[in-house]
Design a protein around this nucleic acid. Structure first.
Length: 248
DNA sequence: AACTGTTGCAACCGCAACTAT
DNA sequence: TATAGTTGCGGTTGCAACAGT
């Protein structure tokens, strides 16, 4: 790989949009070479014609080792909902609690969840009041009411569903929410190869490698985002959810 | 088969916070 | 201390894949 030529190419206009396999391979090589810092310098050196910001995002959200590319599990869903209730839209903070998940994953999941929940509540309101579209109430009124139900009235129900005796219903989707933990996972051949690549890397890696993956929690104590749980455990749930930490 | 609507998610944008000089 | 450059975060958008008609 020619460092200098790559640097010169990088001086021209930047590419945007979907990343190609060749770009991913190049990015992986340069991250191994230069580390996960100085993304602008890395982008220029690699000759990817991508911004440092874009390289960083691609690495963190997709190429980084130990990322999970499968569906959010029922257990993870439970934690996301609970932590969102506690912390709000602090996606990166929530992501630090869930090994192998990115803030983007969680953000996207939450939006999907919210959309489904909203649809369900709207359905309930319509059947409850016998509302028809465009009759008596505007749709925006109904949406606002649905939002209210989600953000206020359902909070206690969340607690009960998430942590109480009914928690099992989240796994089996028996509450009619339209959510299921049993989705089929579809991955492209390229993603499968990527996954294999990282699995083989993790098998070969040693302690020093994993010690690189550290971050700081809100109390500024060093934590490993992939393998450890912050000391200030917000929910006292981690000990009971051991399978979450099983990475392969 | 063709079209339309919906969904999931990758990637971008803008801004704030942080770091280096 | 001030400034410029870099990084991190949350919100938003665009688009491919899928489902329904």
């Amino acid at each position: 790989m020619d460092f200098q030529i790559g640097a010169m190419q990088g001086e021209h206009q930047l590419r945007k949009g979907t990343w190609h396999e060749e770009e991913d391979e190049r990015l992986i090589s340069f991250v191994k070479l230069m580390g996960e810092k100085r993304w602008d310098a890395l982008a220029k050196a690699s000759g990817l014609r991508r911004s440092g910001k874009s390289c960083r995002l691609r690495w963190l959200n997709y190429l980084r080792p130990n990322l999970k590319h499968d569906q959010i599990s029922g257990e993870e869903e439970t934690i996301i909902l609970k932590l969102h209730e506690r912390w709000g839209n602090k996606w990166s903070k929530i992501a630090r609690i869930l090994p192998g998940r990115t803030d983007n994953d969680i953000k996207n999941y939450w939006r999907t969840y919210l959309r489904k929940k909203l649809a369900k509540v709207e359905e309930e309101i319509k059947s409850e009041y016998g509302l028809e579209k465009g009759k008596e109430h505007s749709s925006s009124t109904s949406t606002a009411t649905a939002d209210h139900k989600i953000w206020n009235c359902d909070a206690d129900q969340y607690d009960e569903d998430l942590w109480g005796s009914k928690s099992s219903s989240w796994d089996g989707c028996s509450d009619g929410s339209g959510l299921s933990a049993d989705f089929e996972l579809t991955s492209s051949p390229y993603e499968n190869r990527l996954s294999d690549y990282w699995i083989s890397l993790s098998v070969l890696s040693n302690e020093e490698d994993s010690s690189e993956m550290k971050c700081y929690d809100e109390c500024n104590s060093m934590v490993d985002p992939y393998w450890t749980v912050p000391d200030d455990d917000p929910c006292d749930t981690w000990n009971s959810s051991g399978s979450l930490w099983d990475m392969n």
